[in-house]
Nucleic acid binder design. Structure first.
Length: 482
RNA sequence: GGCCUCAUCGUCUAACGGUUAGGACGCCAGGUUUUCAUCCUGGUAAUAGGGGUUCGAUUCCCCUUGAGGUCACCA
């Protein structure tokens, strides 16, 4: 039975780097018909952030990473919050004391800090065990409990990194239980993973340097080693750092709030550092469950390219059924759209579907369907074709358009007919005539196809906007940059 | 500074030791008889450097360089 876990500490939100670790662990569990467990590592009460636990749960749910056991749903190995498992760590700590593999730390934190400073000054790595007391006192639970390490070289296998090895110099006496009674991550996660029967530990690269210490502790605890997999970091869009909140890494829920599809996020995050060896770029969840494998995960870090996420999201939006899409965009329509019915909005949506990258763009893309556009003469003065014409000429074209369209039934077929007739009658190039009508009725740099658009807003609105534009052109001078 | 890890187009990446080093995003150009977008077509651009091993290295080994991580009573 495969059992994987995601074990965040509730100290904030979840960004794309964090959720990828969860996603890969989830994939490993699901593709083996195994179980995926959520566990909160809340052993540092100082760093805990209120509401963070709920936020992490919501993030997992939103992206679609369902878990079989967890703090909110329980399970056979409950509780799933480390702060509620203190007696378990005490029990294991006791075992280590009894076997002579743990001892009370006699130094004050100031004294340890001095040792550390010495090491820094002499440009050497800090090793606590160089100061290991020869005759430690009995541990009373009020000082830190340290692991008595047994320094040796290790070679081990990592599912992603392959063969890894280190020398004895990296092994040290780390703290098992802090003076406040809570265990450290280093100790607690090993105990919990064992108690909870976790088979695969999937975690970020920042733990790589600590793994030899864990190996040493596994031996002392006489616990068999689970499979280890180390994920490379996701790098920030700019700079050469791992993605972090400091660098403005966005909460994954922010992406959902901006109208990115969970499916797009899922596929994008999964393919950041993994691919199946074919040219497929976007995967469904099920495809990933079928095809994912840890040994095809990239060893080097990958940069988070939001541009590519936009492309993937837009690509999925284009493939969606319009009614389905409409359902998902409900929260993104502008206030002014409220007075229009679903049918009208459905038509609007279908005309912008092909250019929509994420839902938060909707208000900007559709405003002229719902409100009177604000006249922006730059659209004419910077237009390659239109800037060559005088206001008089522009007005004449609009006048012709107005009277022509006045006779139209405004069905798409008839609009096309009338517009084409207008083309021959006015003897204008499409680039002039259609651009002008488009601008006069939208005052936007881009808009959907003209026939569809006019049909949707209807005759009355279209004609009044054309008249409005004519009035404007009559009363204003368009600056023509030379 | 010690230790560990990594290294293919700007970015994400493909390539049993044998390919004109492939695909995708982005960008540029052209087409789809209006803009934007979509969709086609084409273009741009990479094996960090140096040594080996080999008939032949992107691929295996070594050195250099560069990048990242780590050296907490944080995870």
């Amino acid at each position: 039975m495969t059992r994987t876990r995601f074990a965040p500490s509730p100290t904030g939100y979840l960004h794309v780097g964090g959720i990828r670790t969860a996603l890969f662990a989830w994939l490993v569990a699901r593709q083996n018909n195994g179980e995926f467990i959520l566990r909160f590592e809340d052993t540092d009460k100082k760093r805990e952030v209120a509401g963070s636990a709920e936020h992490l749960i919501e993030s997992l749910r939103t992206i679609g990473l369902d878990y079989d056991e967890g703090p909110d749903i329980g399970g056979p190995y409950a509780p799933y919050k480390q702060s509620e498992r203190l007696e378990i760590y005490q029990k294991w700590a006791k075992g280590l004391i009894d076997s002579g593999r743990a001892y009370a730390d006699p130094y004050s934190s100031e004294e340890v800090q001095e040792f550390r400073q010495e090491a820094i000054n002499s440009k050497k790595p800090f090793l606590y065990r160089n100061h290991r007391p020869t005759d430690p006192l009995e541990w009373d639970g009020k000082t830190p409990l340290r692991f008595k390490s047994d320094p040796k070289a290790y070679t081990w296998h990592d599912e992603v990194m392959g063969k890894l090895s280190t020398g004895p110099e990296v092994i040290d006496d780390f703290i098992l239980i802090k003076s406040d009674g809570y265990p450290t991550y280093n100790f607690a996660h090993i105990v919990d993973d064992h108690e909870m029967q976790i088979t695969h530990i999937i975690r970020g690269q920042e733990f790589l340097a600590s793994i030899p210490n864990y190996l040493n502790l596994y031996e002392a605890l006489e616990i068999t080693l689970p499979t280890m997999a180390t994920m490379p970091h996701i790098m920030a869009d700019q700079g050469n750092r791992k993605l972090s909140k400091r660098d403005g890494a966005k909460d994954v829920l922010d992406y959902v709030r901006e109208g990115y599809l969970p499916e797009a996020l899922f596929s994008f995050i999964a393919t950041l550092g993994w691919n199946d060896g074919t040219t497929q770029e976007i995967f469904t969840k099920q495809e990933l469950v079928d095809k994912f494998s840890l040994d095809r995960v990239q060893k080097s870090g990958a940069r988070f390219d939001e541009q590519r996420l936009k492309w993937a999201n837009g690509s999925l939006i284009r493939q969606m059924d319009i009614n389905d899409l409409y359902e998902k965009t409900k929260d993104f329509w502008p206030e002014s759209s409220k007075q229009h019915d679903d049918n009208y909005k459905l038509k609007v949506l279908s005309s912008i579907q092909e250019r929509l990258k994420y839902f938060a763009e909707i208000p900007d893309l559709v405003s002229f369907y719902f409100e009177e556009p604000k006249i922006n003469q730059e659209l004419i003065s910077t237009n390659k074709q239109l800037k060559k014409l005088t206001n008089q000429e522009l007005t004449e074209i609009l006048e012709a358009a107005q009277s022509k369209l006045n006779n139209s039934t405004f069905s798409i077929e008839d609009l096309n007919q009338e517009l084409n007739d207008l083309l021959t009658e006015t003897n204008q190039k499409p680039a002039v005539l259609f651009s002008l009508i488009r601008i006069a009725t939208t005052w936007a740099p881009s808009s959907p196809k003209l026939d569809e658009y006019l049909n949707t807003i209807g005759k009355e609105t279209a004609l009044s906007r054309i008249v409005e534009a004519m009035n404007y052109l009559n009363n204003n001078t368009i600056d023509t940059p030379t």
